[in-house]
Simulated scan of single mutants.
Amino acid sequence: MLPGTKPGFELDPRLEAESIHVMWLGLCELRLRDDRRWPWLILIPQRSGMEEIHDLTPLDQAMVSFETNMVAQALKELTGCTKINSAALGNVVRQLHIHVVARSEGDAGWPGPVWGHGVREPYRREDLHRLAETIRGRL
């Protein structure tokens, strides 16, 4: 269990396998998806058994909204992207998590959605960790 993880909380192994820990926010763990096609962050509220945002308490809903907006603004400023895509799909991984993806005209899937587009292209390890450190510094 990582420092900061809430007792009884388990991260879905698929989220863990395709992303790295960036930092702890107030409610969420922030992770960076290992896909160099798009700067892609994932917020995971540290609440067991949650699948939908409306499953959270009203206070947690407000907190996840605040943290998502804070991360989205930082990612947009950091990347200079055209658009931020934010979503909580959960069709494949049911555990509640929120995607925040920087999109730019001409990127690998523009203007379509990133989900299900092509094959994930992992970063070089040092590039992945450098980007995570840059995001930490920005937040």
Rank of each mutant, 00 (worst) to 15 (best):
L2N: 09
G4P: 11
T5E: 09
T5C: 05
K6S: 14
K6C: 10
K6D: 10
P7F: 11
F9G: 03
D12R: 08
P13S: 04
L15C: 05
L15E: 06
A17V: 05
S19T: 00
S19C: 04
S19M: 00
M23Q: 14
W24G: 05
W24F: 13
W24H: 06
W24D: 13
L25G: 01
L27P: 00
C28H: 00
L30V: 02
L30K: 01
L30I: 11
R31L: 02
L32C: 08
R33M: 05
D34Y: 06
D34M: 02
D34I: 05
R36T: 03
R36F: 00
R36P: 01
R37T: 07
R37E: 09
W38Q: 11
P39A: 14
P39M: 04
W40N: 00
L41Y: 04
I42G: 00
I42Y: 00
I44K: 00
P45A: 04
Q46I: 13
Q46C: 08
Q46V: 09
Q46R: 12
S48R: 07
M50K: 10
H54C: 12
H54L: 15
H54Q: 06
H54T: 11
H54N: 11
H54M: 08
D55P: 04
D55V: 13
L56P: 00
L56C: 01
T57D: 04
P58C: 12
L59G: 06
Q61C: 10
Q61F: 01
A62C: 07
S65A: 14
E67K: 08
T68M: 10
M70Y: 03
M70A: 11
M70Q: 07
V71R: 02
A72P: 08
L75E: 04
L75A: 03
L75Y: 02
K76F: 09
E77S: 15
T79F: 13
G80P: 06
G80K: 10
I84G: 12
N85S: 13
N85A: 09
S86V: 14
A87D: 12
A87C: 14
L89D: 09
L89T: 13
L89C: 12
G90M: 01
V93L: 04
Q95H: 09
H97Q: 07
V101Y: 02
A102I: 06
S104G: 12
S104T: 14
S104A: 14
E105S: 15
D107A: 12
A108R: 05
P111M: 10
P111G: 07
G112K: 12
P113D: 15
W115V: 02
G116R: 07
G116M: 12
E121Y: 02
P122V: 11
Y123F: 14
R124G: 04
R125Y: 11
E126H: 11
L128S: 07
H129A: 04
L131E: 09
L131I: 13
L131S: 05
E133I: 14
E133N: 15
E133H: 12
R136G: 13
R136D: 15
G137C: 10
G137N: 08
R138P: 04
L139I: 15
